[in-house]
Simulated scan of single mutants.
Amino acid sequence: MFFFKKLIIFLAMSWFPLMVNSSQICKSDNTLATTPTNQFIDNGNGTVTDKKSSLMWKKCSEGQSGNDCSENSAVTYNWKEALEEIYRINSNEGFAGYKDWRLPNIKELHSIIEKQCQSPAINLEVFPSESIELSGGFWSSSPNTWGAIWMAWFGGKGYVDFQQKPYSYNVRLVRGGK
């Protein structure tokens, strides 16, 4: 029964943003920004640095490129493919001169959910995107006790949940911290 309830909630959260207007909604009058733009430094190389955590993030989801992430489309990966892609990036030329990119842990990934905004619940000035974050989940590196992996979802108001490794989701890389 628990599985079916979780499946119904997942389907509702995944498809709801696609059924409504896809414009981001931000409530700056009564909710403080959790990821204000001035908290980040745009490094001018496809990365941003969070001054609060000292983490360096890729601005675009894997597969996307360009200063506004509008070139190409985001690519989804199952858990094994995501780890292989990160290894490939770091083994080859890296990105922005760095070869130590990794999946963020769930606490790090949760830290970029913008609680002032929804659909998507992310600061689009810092992390520009097409519509991928409206419904897509993002892998973290954090396993849960049932062998699944914790994820962040930027659809709706943004939340964390877990998913099984065979399913395909988005990847946003980070470096530093830990």
Rank of each mutant, 00 (worst) to 15 (best):
N144T: 03
S73Y: 15
T145I: 08
T76K: 11
L7H: 04
S140H: 00
T145M: 07
M56W: 11
T37W: 00
L83Q: 09
L55I: 15
S22H: 13
K27A: 05
N78I: 06
G97S: 09
S168V: 06
N144E: 12
E84L: 10
K5N: 11
N170A: 09
S135T: 11
T47S: 15
K178N: 10
G176V: 05
L124Y: 02
H110W: 07
D50N: 13
Q64T: 15
F16N: 10
F154M: 10
I132G: 02
S131W: 09
G46R: 14
N123F: 09
R175L: 12
G46K: 10
F10P: 01
W153R: 05
F40W: 07
C60P: 03
Y167S: 13
M19L: 15
A74E: 14
A33P: 08
T49P: 12
S91L: 06
L134P: 02
A121V: 03
K165N: 11
F40V: 06
N45T: 07
F95Q: 06
F154T: 04
L18N: 12
C26I: 09
I25V: 13
S168P: 04
F154L: 05
S65W: 10
T35P: 02
S23T: 04
I112C: 03
V126K: 01
L83K: 14
T49M: 13
F40G: 00
K157E: 13
K178L: 05
M56R: 15
T145G: 08
G147T: 06
M19P: 00
W57R: 13
P128W: 04
L11P: 00
E130V: 06
N105M: 12
F127A: 01
E85K: 14
W139S: 01
S53Q: 11
C26Y: 08
E125G: 03
E71A: 14
Q164N: 13
L55T: 10
S70E: 10
R172P: 04
L103P: 02
G46C: 15
R88I: 12
S54F: 15
D100E: 14
N123I: 13
K52V: 14
L173T: 02
V75R: 10
K115S: 15
H110K: 14
N144V: 07
V171S: 02
V20W: 01
I149T: 07
I122P: 00
I89V: 15
S23L: 04
L124D: 00
E93T: 15
W150E: 06
P17I: 05
D42G: 01
L18D: 12
N78S: 10
T47Y: 08
P104Y: 05
P17T: 08
P104E: 08
D161G: 04
V126W: 01
G147H: 05
K27W: 07
N30H: 09
Y87V: 09
K99H: 09
S119G: 09
N78E: 05
G156H: 13
N144F: 03
K80W: 05
Q64M: 15
C69G: 04
I112K: 02
I106M: 02
N92V: 01
R102H: 08
P143G: 03
V126G: 01
R175E: 08
F127R: 01
L124H: 00
G176C: 11
S23D: 07
D29A: 09
N43M: 10
N170S: 12
P17L: 03
M19E: 05
W153F: 11
I89R: 07
M1K: 09
L32P: 06
R175I: 11
